[in-house]
């Protein structure tokens, strides 16, 4: 959060670790730019921003969950179900704000369920959200069936995902707004401090008179809302709602972005601003590998290896 003084060698190695990610982002940009000049074209850069918006919103909203020492594996199906909720509300002729609210409420409800079970029943987050993943996916398939639902002639809704203002897609503005808002929450409100405190030492936070369970619940609600918002944007972007959107592996991308940003999976340390770096790192990596025609399998392996490497560095530091 703030500057941390250390002895000199520790400070040096600390800085290397702290700054590894920005350096890595710079390095991969340089590599891709040199090997493929089209990488630096405005179109491609805007494209990257557009591509990372969906994962980015989810990662930003998941950061608090991971900071409290939890995790949410259920974001993929929440994304799908929120898109379906929006589709059916559109279909029923509701006005746009109601449609968006309907989509978001899916995330709020699932997040609330996750949070209550994790915080009050004290069940392990990984199992709870794994079960929720299965349940929400099942619900989405019941609600939407296996077929695609086309969203047509809804200019207002389509604007969310496909519109643009001043040369930038609307989804990028939304991403930016969510990111700024969450950074503000982290840096300028008691919640931000409390989330870190719970992850660092939950018992101490409770003994300092904080409502730790309520806070943990809230954090899962935020995560669910983020996934739902991502679902709305995605369904608007591709003009379709589908129960199998956000396939298995989506949550991995989201967690990877957060963890690459230096948020400790054990809870405590973490920063939403750095999560953004993680998001762009993965986004640029994906984009560059696509441009260079790296096959999808190598991309998967590379991603797994990078996450393990990043975590191993983090574990060494701790």
């Amino acid at each position: 959060m703030s500057e941390r003084g250390l002895s000199l060698p520790a400070a040096l190695s600390g800085h290397v670790v702290q700054n590894a990610l920005p350096v890595a982002v710079a390095v991969i940009i340089a590599i891709f730019a040199l090997t493929e000049p089209a990488f630096l074209s405005t179109d491609n850069l805007v494209g990257i921003a557009r591509q990372v918006a969906i994962i980015g919103i989810m990662a930003v909203c998941m950061t608090f969950v991971i900071m409290t020492g939890g995790v949410d594996l259920s974001v993929g199906p929440v994304l799908a179900l929120a898109g379906l909720a929006a589709f059916y509300s559109l279909d029923a002729g509701f006005p746009l704000p109601v449609v968006i609210l309907a989509g978001l409420s899916v995330g709020a409800v699932v997040g609330l369920a996750n949070g209550l079970i994790v915080a009050f029943l004290q069940l392990p987050p990984i199992i709870v959200t794994l079960a929720m993943l299965s349940m929400v996916r099942g619900t989405a398939l019941i609600v939407g069936g296996p077929e695609q639902h086309l969203i047509r002639n809804e200019p207002g809704y389509s604007f969310i995902g496909t519109g643009s203002m001043m040369g930038l897609p609307v989804s990028v503005y939304i991403f930016a707004a969510v990111a700024v808002f969450m950074i503000l929450v982290q840096r300028r409100t008691p919640l931000g401090l409390l989330v870190a405190a719970i992850g660092d030492n939950e018992r101490a936070a409770r003994l300092s008179g904080h409502r730790t369970r309520l806070t943990k619940t809230l954090v899962y609600v935020i995560c669910g809302l983020g996934a739902a918002l991502a679902g709305i944007i995605q369904s608007s972007q591709v003009h379709t709602a589908l129960a199998t959107y956000g396939p298995f592996g989506t949550e991995l991308d989201v967690i990877a972005a957060v963890v690459l940003g230096g948020t400790s999976i054990m809870g405590g340390n973490g920063s939403i601003a750095r999560t953004l770096l993680g998001v762009f790192f993965l986004g640029i990596l994906n984009n560059g590998m696509n441009i260079l025609n790296v096959p999808i399998d190598i991309q998967l392996i590379a991603k797994g290896a990078i996450i393990v490497a990043a975590l191993a560095i983090a574990a060494r530091r701790g």
Partner: peptide, 22 residues
């Protein structure tokens, strides 16, 4: 590497699946 079991195996999930495609 002192990784959390679930995160380590989530990462290898991706890596093994990728290797399968490869």
């Amino acid at each position: 590497l002192r990784l959390q079991p679930f995160i380590a195996t989530l990462a290898t999930l991706a890596a093994y699946r990728g290797l399968t495609y490869a």
